[in-house]
Simulated assay, not measured.
Amino acid sequence: MRVLAAMSGGVDSAVAAARAVDAGHEVVGVHLALSASPGTLRTGSRGCCSKEDAGDARRAADVLGIPFYVWDFADRFKEDVIDDFVAAYAAGETPNPCLRCNEKIKFSALADRALALGFDAVVTGHYARLEDGVLRRAVDADKDQSYVLAVLNAQQLARAMFPVGDTPKPRIREEAAERGLAVANKPDSHDICFIPSGDTQAFLGAKIGIRPGAVVDADGTKLAEHEGVHGFTIGQRKGLGLPGPAADGKPRYVTGIDPDSGTVRVGSVEDLHVWTIGAERAIWTSGVAPDGPIECVAQVRAHGGTAPAIAEAVGDGLSVRLREPLTGVARGQAVVLYRPDELGDMVIGSGTISATGGAGSAPIGSQTEAAATR
């Protein structure tokens, strides 16, 4: 096949491209320029898509003996990822920009251009497995990225390749060194790539500005003032602007955000318990929504935040009822559904969280369990 290898300048994408070459594919490397004014150097493991990264990607392509290009996706990235991120926080949501980047840039804009140029698939260094069109968790659980790939539909998965998902990360670094790739020991990128300082609140403050509001307790009593709901997320404990813990001595957490009134509600950890999740923009990796309730495992964060559940399609969205409560579940996050089997956890689908139910939502009991026949 003729495949396009998305090369970030890191070790994972370099080895993924190398494995595609080994498999006999005709491989062309491409680095995505996602910033209109990329920095010269990264700050340690923070940030990406810098001039340094582009140079590292080019050198890796030279070692592999494949053609290499840099494609400018800065405008598209700003519109579909950065602007979406800022708008979501302004609306009191907690988005994951990596999901949007995969959905809108790497496996939409990039893949569409690749197909138009006659390529059959896009290769990336994501840690996930694709087997007969089924998306599964990576072998390396600590590096698994299936959560941020669960926004891909069946058509996008059909033209994707994840060559490193069957290998633990330490072995990938060893392989890169054996191949003579200079990125073998390059630090992994952390935090949000377009906020290399790591200060998300400062970034959002500069974009959104001051929108004052109140921090209140469960009874609506005003405890403090703040400069904008974008500085808070559900489950947050630190940086609330409060003089101390609650009267009972227990720590307080953000339990609710109302962007219209600018109100941030705080409460106990028990107030964070979520038993039901409603989501919109459901994506089913098989291309077909399930016909009725399904047994699954729901995950609400890239690493951690999992619970057994029963889920079902509801219109263009989905509804999830948890067997065990989850905490820190916020609107704008993704809920990803997995089904364990003998080959490892497979991704069933995903949706963008739009509503949650707490203590008033009863956990799943024996009567509803009988309804989950799949």
Rank of each mutant, 00 (worst) to 15 (best):
P163S: 07
G165F: 00
G165W: 00
D166S: 14
P168L: 13
P170E: 11
P170K: 09
P170Y: 09
P170C: 05
R171L: 14
I172W: 04
E174A: 13
E175H: 10
E175D: 12
A177R: 14
R179A: 11
R179H: 08
L181A: 02
V183K: 05
K186R: 15
D188P: 03
D191C: 02
F194A: 08
F194I: 07
F194K: 05
G198D: 11
D199E: 13
D199A: 07
T200K: 15
T200A: 13
T200L: 09
Q201V: 15
L204Q: 05
G209T: 08
I210N: 08
I210M: 06
I210A: 13
I210Y: 01
P212R: 15
G213L: 02
A214C: 11
V216E: 13
V216R: 12
D217W: 03
A218E: 07
G220A: 10
T221E: 13
H226Y: 04
E227H: 08
E227G: 07
G228W: 03
V229C: 00
H230I: 05
G231V: 03
G231P: 01
F232I: 11
I234V: 13
G235H: 02
Q236M: 15
Q236C: 08
R237E: 14
K238S: 09
G239C: 08
G239Q: 10
L240Y: 06
G244K: 07
R252M: 15
Y253W: 13
Y253G: 01
D260I: 15
